[in-house]
Design a protein around this nucleic acid. Sequence first.
DNA 1: TGCTTATATAAGGATATTATTATATATATA
DNA 2: TATATATATAATAATATCCTTATATAAGCA
Lengths: 124, 124
Amino acid sequence: MTLESSVKISKALGESTRLKIIKLLSVRPMYVCELESVLKISQPRISQHLRIIKEAGLVKERKEAQRVFYMLQTDYLQSHLKKLINFLDEDLENLPEFEEENSRLQKLQCDSNVVNCKNIYENN
Amino acid sequence: MTLESSVKISKALGESTRLKIIKLLSVRPMYVCELESVLKISQPRISQHLRIIKEAGLVKERKEAQRVFYMLQTDYLQSHLKKLINFLDEDLENLPEFEEENSRLQKLQCDSNVVNCKNIYENN
DNA sequence: TGCTTATATAAGGATATTATTATATATATA
DNA sequence: TATATATATAATAATATCCTTATATAAGCA
């Protein structure tokens, strides 16, 4: 799980229309026009949100004649959420994307008693 | 878990600087100046992101002299993520915020064979 | 073939978000 | 008390997001 992909997925979940689309697709896969009819919002708006959800990897599509069938990748989403829970417990050393932050944090710990933030900052 | 609060938390997670702050605070609570020193980004930028994270309920603060100590509400965040996993499995009927969507979806199911999306839309 | 349906995409404006710079506030300290 | 430190907030500019309207594409259907 990269930071970037995690941000993308959280962004996909962090908008109410998209969260509704995702929940509806968890009930069953749907055509765009079905989402349109259930949500009562415009078709381009749905297509645009679906694109963001798709780019986050949360749905797969299947073209059926002129319709497009959208399927939520439930397992992928749920496993991502579980990874996010573990991410919070993970040692910083085990997260390559935090290499620099970790070394600065280590150094900061060594400067034992944090008396003065100004000094912390200047020394690091 | 309301939709709104869920969106707020996902939004808080859906930005790379904030996700980094949250991860760092999972290691241990920190002062703003420590975050500044570890992340090497400007103080106002950190304070502004902390405000968003705080408004999502993910951190608590404690003022200590002129410094402010930020503590991640790890249990709250993790329990939210677990609720989000369950949310995907939840029956639509049990989600008050999907009352209208659910009734439209029910009606749509009854119109048995989905031959024509145009008709679906006009009938609902 | 012409019309309808289903969806995607582009263009536009409105609003929101992010980052920077500047300033305010509060506390500590010399 | 004057100065330094720690943080928050305001103002601004740059960018991104979201929604609407309009258009393009592609597949049915009369």
